[in-house]
Computed example of a mutant assay.
Amino acid sequence: MTAWRAKSNLGRPSWWRGGGVVSSLELTNPVERQDLRKHAMQRLGFDESKPVVVVFNHAVSDALGTNREIFDDLADWFEKTAERAAQDTRVNWLFQDHPAQFLYDVTGFFDTVKARWADYPHLQFRRSFDLSKNIIWSLVDLGLTVRGSVSAELPVYGVPALQAGWSEWSQCGFSMVAQDREDYWRLLDDSIEKLLAGSSPITQEQVERARLWQWFYRGGGDVASMLVQHWDMGQNDSLIRALTVAMRHVESDGEAALQATQRMWTRKEPILTRFDFTDGAERLAMQLGAVTVK
Results as ranks from 00 to 15, higher is better:
residue 192 I to Q: 11
residue 192 I to C: 12
residue 192 I to Y: 11
residue 193 E to I: 10
residue 194 K to V: 09
residue 194 K to A: 14
residue 197 A to Q: 13
residue 197 A to V: 08
residue 197 A to E: 13
residue 198 G to I: 11
residue 198 G to V: 11
residue 199 S to C: 12
residue 199 S to T: 15
residue 199 S to A: 10
residue 200 S to I: 12
residue 200 S to C: 14
residue 201 P to A: 09
residue 202 I to G: 06
residue 202 I to M: 13
residue 204 Q to W: 10
residue 204 Q to G: 09
residue 204 Q to E: 15
residue 204 Q to A: 14
residue 205 E to S: 15
residue 205 E to V: 15
residue 207 V to I: 15
residue 207 V to H: 13
residue 208 E to L: 12
residue 209 R to P: 00
residue 210 A to N: 05
residue 210 A to K: 03
residue 210 A to T: 06
residue 211 R to C: 08
residue 212 L to T: 13
residue 212 L to I: 08
residue 212 L to M: 10
residue 213 W to Y: 15
residue 214 Q to A: 04
residue 214 Q to V: 00
residue 214 Q to G: 00
residue 214 Q to E: 03
residue 215 W to S: 02
residue 215 W to L: 01
residue 216 F to D: 10
residue 217 Y to R: 10
residue 217 Y to P: 00
residue 218 R to I: 04
residue 218 R to H: 09
residue 218 R to A: 04
residue 219 G to A: 03
residue 219 G to N: 04
residue 219 G to V: 07
residue 220 G to R: 02
residue 221 G to L: 02
residue 221 G to Y: 00
residue 221 G to A: 07
residue 221 G to I: 01
residue 222 D to E: 07
residue 222 D to G: 00
residue 222 D to M: 04
residue 223 V to C: 04
residue 223 V to D: 06
residue 224 A to G: 01
residue 224 A to H: 06
residue 224 A to L: 09
residue 224 A to Q: 08
residue 225 S to W: 02
residue 225 S to I: 04
residue 225 S to D: 06
residue 226 M to E: 10
residue 226 M to T: 03
residue 227 L to K: 03
residue 228 V to A: 06
residue 229 Q to D: 01
residue 230 H to D: 08
residue 230 H to N: 06
residue 230 H to W: 03
residue 231 W to Q: 10
residue 232 D to F: 08
residue 232 D to W: 05
residue 232 D to H: 06
residue 232 D to I: 05
residue 233 M to N: 11
residue 233 M to S: 03
residue 233 M to R: 07
residue 235 Q to V: 07
residue 235 Q to I: 07
residue 235 Q to C: 02
residue 235 Q to F: 06
residue 235 Q to M: 06
residue 236 N to P: 00
residue 236 N to S: 11
residue 236 N to D: 13
residue 236 N to R: 11
residue 236 N to E: 11
residue 236 N to M: 09
residue 237 D to H: 10
residue 237 D to I: 08
residue 237 D to A: 13
residue 238 S to V: 11
residue 238 S to W: 05
residue 239 L to T: 02
residue 240 I to Y: 09
residue 240 I to E: 08
residue 240 I to V: 12
residue 241 R to K: 14
residue 242 A to Y: 03
residue 243 L to G: 00
residue 243 L to V: 07
residue 243 L to N: 01
residue 243 L to C: 01
residue 244 T to F: 09
residue 244 T to C: 05
residue 245 V to W: 10
residue 245 V to S: 07
residue 246 A to F: 03
residue 246 A to R: 05
residue 247 M to Y: 01
